[in-house]
Amino acid sequence: MKRIIFVYAIGCYGLFGIVFVWLAAFLLNIGDLRGPAKSAPASAAAINLTLIAAFGIAHSVMARPAFKRVWLRIIPHAAERATYVLQSSFLLALIFWCWQPIPVVIWDIDGLAAWIVYGAFFLGTAIILVSTFLLGHGEFVGLSQAWNNLRGVAKKPPQFRTPFLYRLVRHPLQFGLIVTMTATPVMTAGHLLFVAAMTLYIMIGLRLEERALLREFGADYENYRRDVPMLIPHPFRRAR
C-alpha cells in the first residue's frame, strides 16, 4: 500500500507539471490556445466563470481543516496532499480545455515593450516556483508525505518560517501568480476575465488561509502579519 501511495503521488505530480506548462502556454496564447470566439460574449463569460467557480470552490473546500478531518477518514493521510494537487490540476486543465474565448482586444503591445512584458511574465513564473521550494516543494506537491510514509518516517510538526521572499510579502506564490496572469503583450476580454476572476478567488482564499494560519501559529503569525504586507511587496518597508 505504501508503494502504491508513492507511485500515486508521483503520477499526481507529473500531471501537475503538465498542467503548469499548459497554464503558461494558455496565458501566453501559444498556438492560439484561447482561440477565436465560439459563442456570444455573455454566454462565454457565464461558462468561463462557472469553470473558475468550480475550481475555486473545490480548491478552497479541500484545504479547510473541517473537510480534511472527514476526508482523512476515507483516504490515507500520506495521499491527502497528492489528491489535493490532483483535483486542482484536473479542474485547472478543465478550464483550459473548455474555455470560451472572448477575443476583444484590450491592449496590444509590441516591440521592446512586449519583451519587457515577457520579462515580467517569466519573473512571475520564477517567483511561483521559488516560493514552493522555499517552504518545501516536495511537501507542497505531496511527494514528501508519500516518501516519508514509504520510509516509515513520522510527520514533523509544522514550523513557522519566513525564508527569503516570505520576508517581503506573506504570500509570494500568489503574488507571482497575479504577475504571471497579467503580464501579457496581448490582453483580450477573455484573458482579462480570467485574471479578474482568479484574482478574486486568490483574495478570498488568502483570507481563509490567514485565519487557519492564525489558529495554527498564533502570536507568531499575528506579528508577522503586522510586519509584512499580505500580497504586494512594499519597497520601503523592512520586516522585523
Rank of each mutant, 00 (worst) to 15 (best):
A82M: 06
N149Y: 15
L231M: 08
N29Y: 05
L206W: 14
L51H: 05
Q87R: 03
L28N: 04
K2Q: 13
L168F: 07
N48I: 04
N48Y: 02
T132F: 02
V169R: 01
N48V: 01
A53P: 14
S39P: 00
P235H: 11
G136H: 11
M230A: 15
W71R: 00
F121V: 08
A197P: 12
L28I: 04
A82F: 07
D110H: 15
I18C: 13
A126F: 09
L91K: 14
V186D: 05
V21L: 14
Q87G: 06
P233K: 07
L15Q: 08
L33W: 12
K155W: 00
R64M: 08
W107F: 15
K38P: 00
N223E: 07
L193M: 15
G35D: 10
S39D: 06
L33F: 09
F164G: 00
S131Q: 08
I232G: 09
R238E: 14
T162R: 04
Y224R: 05
P185K: 05
A44Y: 12
I204Q: 07
M230F: 11
Y8D: 02
V228E: 13
H171G: 04
Q159Y: 03
F164R: 03
R73N: 10
A63M: 06
G56P: 07
A82Y: 07
A154H: 11
R170Q: 05
I4F: 04
S88L: 12
T182S: 15
I178G: 08
M1Y: 02
A120G: 04
R73Y: 04
H59N: 02
A93Q: 02
F26C: 03
L72P: 00
E80H: 06
S60P: 04
K68D: 08
Y8H: 04
R215I: 09
W107R: 10
E80R: 02
S43N: 13
A114T: 07
A113C: 00
F26M: 06
N149G: 15
R211G: 15
V169Q: 03
H77F: 10
R81H: 02
L143M: 14
R237Y: 02
V7E: 11
A54G: 11
G138D: 08
F160K: 06
V169N: 04
G31A: 11
I18Y: 09
R238C: 13
T132V: 06
A154P: 08
A183M: 06
L23T: 10
S144N: 13
G111Q: 05
W97R: 08
F90G: 00
A114G: 14
R170C: 06
D32R: 07
H77A: 11
L27C: 10
F164Y: 09
G138W: 11
I116C: 12
Q174N: 13
